[in-house]
Design a protein around this nucleic acid. Structure first.
Lengths: 136, 136
DNA sequence: TTAACTCCTTTCATAAATAAAGTAAAACCG
DNA sequence: CGGTTTTACTTTATTTATGAAAGGAGTTAA
């Protein structure tokens, strides 16, 4: 099971996953090989799923960040799901949900124009409610 | 501005941010120092905001992942925002939105019991609509 | 008590990162 | 147009980190 040191390691790696094992070790009071072994264990157990980066989407030209709640009229979701697959450049996440709607789409768009185009195409397959993110 | 190589680098780092500069260089047809210099530029420009890990919350005991749409009755949001600050262990993100509601809370809970407790406290400050994530 | 296991440290060989120097192509400018 | 500066890269050499191996201390269980 996980102890306090493992949780500290997860916290440190969440803040900076490119930290060296030496530095990580210092933060959690271990030597580099010990820290490295802990991390390897966390990877093997599947607790650490992967190493990634946070990208500033605004600076890449995606000025709009939105959640779209999807309500499919009929029980057959395939047309909607197929559509989603064609729009990977705008879609951050597609969550299947229970509650108010069938899916929640997390999206990014460079402009209102392209978002509008997306929504029009989306509307061929499902109804939706749009929530634009103002702040995080 | 960004060229094709920069976008490739962002893609590679998104998939594995602990890749060595040597390997990253090979993937984008550069030497290690050249790749390293590109990455440093992406950091300095703020496009790369940070390096982090994906954690399997399920394996850490957070079996419930939910979106909660917040509708504050009055215009004064402070009680809600103060409450959110006390609940960091359950809250992944708090998005201020325009649309159907005032905020969208992304949360994780270990059990229905603790989620219920959270929702009861939340209800002292705001109304909400709950969406449980079934699948991503 | 002893054996096996876990988790750590130290040491050392190898690999990667980084700094420095040099080069070639592109952009700038009098 | 010619000369200068800038940019982006490579190569080389040094520093630093990684990872394998050996060994030790503490824990558990036969």
């Amino acid at each position: 099971m996980l102890d306090k040191t493992d949780l500290l390691i997860l916290e440190e790696l969440s803040m900076n996953s490119r930290i060296t094992m030496k530095e990580l070790g210092e933060k959690v009071h271990l030597t580099a090989p010990a820290a490295s072994a802990r991390v390897a264990k966390l990877e093997d157990s599947g607790i650490i799923e992967g190493y990634t980066i946070n990208i500033n989407q605004e600076k890449l030209g995606f000025h709009i960040h939105a959640f779209i709640t999807i309500i499919t009229q009929n029980t057959y979701h395939q047309p909607y799901l197929s559509f989603v697959k064609t729009q990977v450049e705008y879609i951050i996440n597609n969550y299947k949900i229970s509650g108010d709607g069938c899916y929640i789409l997390e999206c990014k768009f460079p402009s209102n124009e392209l978002m509008n185009q997306f929504l029009e195409e989306l509307n061929e397959h499902a109804n939706y409610k749009l929530s634009i993110i103002i702040n995080k």
